[in-house]
């Protein structure tokens, strides 16, 4: 508990510290819990509603923990031109998930992302922090096997 306080504290002294503080909490805890919202509100002298107002605007901040591995399939135009929609369908079918959902064993979260800047080698998929270019279902699954 104390650690969360400490994490947040270092950001209260800098200009516009709430965003970096949210990133730090998300990274440390895997999501922004009710407790973290209270701590953030207290540290920044905001109401809890104000903290919630900011964090719910951004896709990266989640109120619930994500799966152990987060798969982001790019759905922007360059990847569309190389059939990213079909790839998305194959992956949603394979994991039995809709976009934005997490498997019941909390292993995999499947999301959509708009542009990873890898538009020259699409379709692109990001698994955690790694981008896979010229992606297909096999590449994605074998990457997951390797990091398991």
């Amino acid at each position: 508990m104390k650690k969360l306080k400490e994490t947040i504290k270092s950001f209260t002294e800098i200009e516009g510290g709430l965003m970096p503080a949210l990133h730090a909490v998300q990274e440390q805890e895997g999501h922004i819990s009710k407790n973290a919202i209270s701590e953030l509100a207290h540290a920044f002298n905001y109401s809890k509603a104000e903290v919630l107002d900011v964090l719910t605007y951004y896709d990266d901040f989640t109120l619930e923990p994500s799966g152990e591995h987060v798969i982001r399939v790019c759905g922007a135009e360059a990847c569309q031109s190389l059939k990213s929609k079909e790839l998305t369908d194959l992956l949603t079918d394979h994991f039995g998930l809709n976009l934005g959902e997490t498997t019941s064993d909390s292993k995999i979260t499947l999301k959509e992302v708009f542009c990873l800047g890898n538009c020259a080698l699409g379709p692109s998929v990001m698994i955690n922090q790694t981008v896979i270019g010229e992606a297909d279902k096999d590449k994605v699954l074998s990457f997951l096997d390797n990091i398991e």
Binding site: E15, G16, G17, L18, M19, P20, L22, H23, F44, D53, V54, Y57, Y58, D59, D60, F61, V113, F114
Partner: peptide
Amino acid sequence: RIGAGSYVCGEETAMMESIEGRRG
């Protein structure tokens, strides 16, 4: 400073809001 997955934060005034710690 790191964004958090919002396209419109590339619009300069939304970017400023985000840097200041608010919704974009």
